[in-house]
Design a protein around this nucleic acid. Structure first.
Lengths: 148, 148
DNA sequence: AAAATATATTTGTATATACAATTTTTGTAG
DNA sequence: CTACAAAAATTGTATATACAAATATATTTT
């Protein structure tokens, strides 16, 4: 992916700007890939992430605020996102007995099964996206990303 | 920015997945920064990019399809995006005389002036976002991004 | 030249997201 | 104990985005 080619400008771009634009372009490509492979499962990237967070809790329920904290993309209405998962039967929601302000969200067996299939598709697309980068380069990239 | 810290999972993540998640997290941070500084100008990142593309054409008008091609984030309705810029007086639109299917979009003086101010703000936030990376690291990063 | 096809843009609609206001419950100061 | 503030989630609303269908003009085919 070549920045200059895509944005086709003659004057050379300052390194900072160039980096940011480059980054946004790559991100866009990644998003396209991911949403394409998640489409058959009828979940968004956000929903997929929430399912993964829930699985990571191994039965322990999560309430909305903790979900929100850990979501890759912050959004104010986790409520409605969970609604979607609920209507697909992927999660369960119940009022927390010890603190009735909170709600407890847990992943269902059905959700776990669907998630397993998504995982396969996801690791396929990850491989596809990263196919031109060696292990060394991936580690280098992670080191750089860590500095942000 | 530390992936593990944010997604708080105990089992270690495969390098591929880790890279993608890391990437999405950083992108999110970048987007937050950028939309924060563009907010006072009442333009979205997309609109800002379109203005930059138009400026780059130095008076030569651009039609919607070429705008769409060069936009960082693809979207089907460039029409409505241009509407927004139009209502702010930042661009002009007129039917192309040689091919009446096309419309020609040009940036106005007012748009150029606003854009100059946005540039200052933008290069400030770019600096802020990238403050922990050296020139060398930025070049390294661009080299890696180029492989996507 | 009429019909079919392609190009360029616009519009409709459903869903996603951001932000603010509201509701419900809990905790705390007087 | 009442009043007030804080916490957690939900709802309302405006805007953004994705995708498909529709419109208008131009080009090609027969």
């Amino acid at each position: 992916m070549n920045v200059e080619e895509i944005i086709r400008t003659d004057k050379k771009i300052p390194l900072n700007s160039r980096t940011i634009i480059h980054f946004l372009l790559v991100n866009n490509k990644i998003n396209e890939h991911i949403s394409r492979i998640l489409k058959p499962f009828d979940v968004s990237l956000q929903q997929f992430n929430v399912l993964r967070i829930l699985r990571g809790r191994k039965g322990k329920p999560a309430n909305l605020s903790t979900l929100n904290e850990r979501m890759v993309t912050k959004m104010s209405n986790t409520t409605r996102l969970v609604d979607k998962l609920l209507s697909k039967g992927y999660v369960e929601r119940r009022v927390c007995p010890s603190n009735r302000r909170k709600v407890e969200i847990t992943i269902t067996t059905q959700g776990n099964n669907a998630l397993k299939k998504m995982d396969v598709a996801m690791s396929g697309v990850e491989k596809e996206i990263l196919k031109n980068l060696s292990t060394d380069e991936l580690e280098q990239l992670n080191r750089l990303l860590h500095k942000f």
